[in-house]
Each structure stands twice: as structure tokens, then as C-alpha cells.
Design a binder for these strands. Structure first.
Lengths: 139, 139
DNA sequence: ACAAGTACTTACCCTAAAGTATGTATCGAT
DNA sequence: ATCGATACATACTTTAGGGTAAGTACTTGT
């Protein structure tokens, strides 16, 4: 899905950054406008396709599925479909996906610190984060 | 620098994601192929422009400066120039920039865990990370 | 007189990611 | 017989970011 030209400079550089920088590796996996939001919504438990769609109305179906597939092939979430009509498909975070919890938590923490100090943004607080107090230990 | 069309759907969505997702906020700040790498190199201390360039040969000067300026306006690093000839400019991480250390560390940790479990990549280890053992406490 | 070093700038091009719009399969319910 | 629900697929367009290539200013060294 979404063809890529293999031998472009941009792809080579991406690969380099990718190999020599674990941070870039992570951003490859959870980057894009929507991936973190999708993951966030799945942190609280597996959801059906339509539930995710409802939770994030602004996302288009094309992009949603695109990302879900990407996340699946990256091993971050697991797709389970029941062969019924109408279809019933559930997406759940894998172990690796769950491992992103502390990562996202740390990122969120920094963002909120920034918001506190320069008062330009107003993220509520880390309380919004699912199971925030326990998450660092959980892994 | 690099004009943006203010009223595109893509910008609106970006802003939405941005506001409702602190993780997206962080990725705005440190996203792109090169930003994490630049930040990484500055974690070990301030550097001159040419030193950064030498440390990351594959980056073009245009993109390097572009990112340095962005990082500066985002308050992540501080630019100091001595009015001499030839010019002497130093880039140092600000307090906010230093605050990214644990963020990047946590990300790197996850990446390396992934590498360990699926054996597709071989990041050396977290030892490469500047002052790794202390960093979580430092902030 | 000219090259070299430093820190940029500017004009132009290309591509990947995101958006828009519409279509598909299957079945039960009205 | 058509409609709605579900989970997608596909063709086409736009745009932001990154890449290429070349130029600028100012001075010291040869």
C-alpha cells in the first residue's frame, strides 16, 4: 500500500537515520499525525474498527486503515476478525505495542512540562493518561 | 522559511492532533529524519555549526540550518555567535532541550528491546547513549 | 590576485504522506 | 427490492518536507 521508490536519496537517508538512531526508529513506528492517537486509544483496551473511527472522527477511513495495517505489520497491534456478516474486526495492542506506554508517557510528560513553563498550551495533565501512576513499573 | 499554506486541511489536522495529543506535540518538535540526530550530538555538549556538519556528513547544509533554526525558535537550543571573521557560531541545548534526554532515552530503550526480541536490527546498546545511567535522575 | 574557511541563503525539483471521493461484498431487516 | 451496517479498497490530487546546486560576505594566508 502506498508505493515507495526504493532508490531515492530520501529513502537512503531515512534508512541511515533509522540504523544509526534508535529515536528515529521509534518515530518511524509511531510517527505521522494519527498513529500516536490511534495507539493512545488502544492503550485502554482493544477496540473494533468502527469504534476507533468513532473515537477519532477527523481521520479518514483510508488513512485509518493504512495506519492500522502498518502498525500490524510492525507488530505493534494484533488484528482479529470474526468471519461473520457484518464483519467484526478487533484491534488490540501487542506486547511490543504495550511497551510503548512508558515511551508515550515520558513524551507526554515532557510536553506538559513545556506547556507549564511557557504557558502556550494547556494539556490538562497526565491524569488523562491511562493508568498513569503504574505504567513505569508495569513493563 | 519553507512557506506553509495556512488553511489546508492537513495543517488543521496537524493542529488538532497537536492540541489533543502531547505525543504528537513532541514529535512535531523532534520529528524529521535529522532532528533527533542533531539533538543526540548536542547532548554531549554545545558544538559549532561546522562541527555538527562534520558529525553528520550526509545532511545538507540547507536542511541542517533549517532544523537548527526550527529548534532554536522552539526553544530547544541556544545559538550564540561571536562577531568575528570567520564567523564563530555555537549551538547548545537549552534547559528544555536537555529535558528531552529522558524522552530520547526511553525511546532508545524501547527500540533496543525491539531489536533484541526480533533480531532484525542491531543497535549496539544503551551504553552509546551519553551519560545513560544517570539521566533519568538528572532532571 | 586568488583560494580557503565559516556560516549561511536562495531558487528550483521530487517524493511520500495525507486528503477527497467513490466503490465493493455480504447479510438481515423492512 | 432496497437499505443500512461493517470493514475495507482504489483512483486521483495536494502539500510539506527533503534534496540539488549554486551563490554570498568577510577576512587571513600565499
Amino acid at each position: 500500500m502506498t508505493q515507495i521508490k526504493e532508490s531515492s536519496t530520501i529513502q537512503e537517508n531515512k534508512l541511515t537515520a533509522f540504523n544509526e538512531c534508535p529515536v528515529t526508529y521509534v518515530m518511524e513506528k509511531i510517527g505521522g499525525y494519527w498513529k500516536p492517537i490511534i495507539l493512545f486509544h488502544l492503550l485502554t483496551g482493544g477496540k473494533r474498527y468502527s469504534e476507533i473511527k468513532k473515537a477519532i472522527p477527523a481521520i479518514t477511513e483510508k488513512v485509518l486503515i493504512q495506519h492500522l495495517k502498518q502498525l500490524e505489520t510492525d507488530g505493534l497491534l494484533i488484528r482479529e476478525s470474526k468471519p461473520v456478516v457484518p464483519p467484526h474486526v478487533t484491534y488490540t495492542l501487542s506486547k511490543a505495542g504495550m511497551g510503548l506506554k512508558p515511551v508515550m508517557y515520558t513524551m507526554a510528560k515532557w510536553a506538559i512540562e513545556q506547556a507549564d513553563t511557557n504557558a502556550k498550551f494547556d494539556y490538562k495533565s497526565l491524569d488523562d493518561f491511562p493508568e498513569s501512576p503504574l505504567m513505569m513499573e508495569e513493563v
